[in-house]
């Protein structure tokens, strides 16, 4: 069973506004695809379509050779998980970390109830958080820590595809780097296929194998990373890349 994702002719209309227009995209198994584009280009909508939060008006999403329909099976739900942008809003404020982590574990019968606590501790260790976090509520954590908890929740159900929707854009640069490293390491360790959305070219360059550029609801370029950053095919990609502020290079 290959963990490849195929998106075919997806169109999404939001009351007359075309958010996605005949989008075709393919992510090879165990690779990371970076989706870039400016605000309003439809990146997040595409992520929601893959995650099953938005039902497309046309087209289909296939994962591991299965068509994902409006109502997904439990296995299909389990296979695709998502990490969101805003660390303040991605955890239920009334739940402890233990509740947050164990919900998916129990629902998908990942571990028997007797091993639940052990598993929660393992998950926290994976994202470099202390065990005593289990009894605390989300407000007791910083933005970066919350994002780690959200990542732990996403990987708790042992997904095959992880969608990360701007997971670091609300974080400070120093924290951003550690979260990116964490995601990269987990991806290697768990052999994940990843859809990584960001407007930050630096972040995309750091984590992705392939880059896709979106503009106004369409994919306008898909290239391997090395090629994209050196010789982008589309005019617009070139504009995007040249607009990124760069550090002047000084001799160190």
């Amino acid at each position: 069973m290959s963990d490849a994702l195929q998106i075919k002719n997806i169109t999404v209309n939001y009351g007359g506004f075309i958010a996605l227009n005949q989008v075709n995209l393919q992510i090879d198994a165990h690779t990371t695809l970076g989706l870039v584009g400016e605000s309003g280009s439809g990146k997040s909508t595409l992520a929601k379509v893959v995650a099953g939060l938005v039902t497309p008006d046309e087209g289909e999403v296939r994962f591991s050779e299965q068509v994902l329909r409006k109502r997904r099976t439990r296995m299909q739900h389990k296979a695709i998980q998502m990490v969101f942008q805003n660390p303040d809003a991605s955890l239920n404020p009334k739940h402890t970390v233990r509740q947050i982590l164990s919900e998916g574990l129990l629902f998908h019968h990942i571990v028997p109830r007797s091993q639940l606590m052990d598993r929660c501790r393992e998950l926290l260790a994976l994202v470099h958080l202390d065990e005593d976090a289990l009894v605390r509520y989300p407000y007791a954590f910083s933005g970066g820590q919350r994002q780690r908890i959200a990542i732990a929740r996403a990987i708790s159900v042992e997904p095959n595809l992880l969608i990360a929707d701007e997971p670091t854009s609300a974080l400070d640069v120093s924290v951003q780097l550690s979260v990116l490293e964490l995601l990269h390491r987990l991806k290697e360790k768990l052999n994940l296929t990843m859809l990584f959305i960001s407007h930050d070219m630096g972040v995309i360059n750091a984590v992705c194998d392939t880059v896709a550029v979106m503009r106004q609801g369409r994919i306008i370029e898909v290239s391997p990373k090395e090629q994209f950053f050196l010789h982008p095919k589309a005019d617009y990609s070139y504009q995007l890349l040249s607009a990124v502020p760069r550090m002047p290079i000084f001799n160190r």
């Binding site: 780097l177 630096g202 360059n205 750091a206 050196l230 010789h231 982008p232 890349l241 550090m247």
Partner: peptide, 18 residues
């Protein structure tokens, strides 16, 4: 640390008149 956490991009070698 701040300087190190800036993510670098390879230099563009594109020939398109952007």
């Amino acid at each position: 640390m701040l300087i190190d956490s800036v993510l670098h991009l390879p230099d563009l070698k594109g020939v398109i008149a952007g």
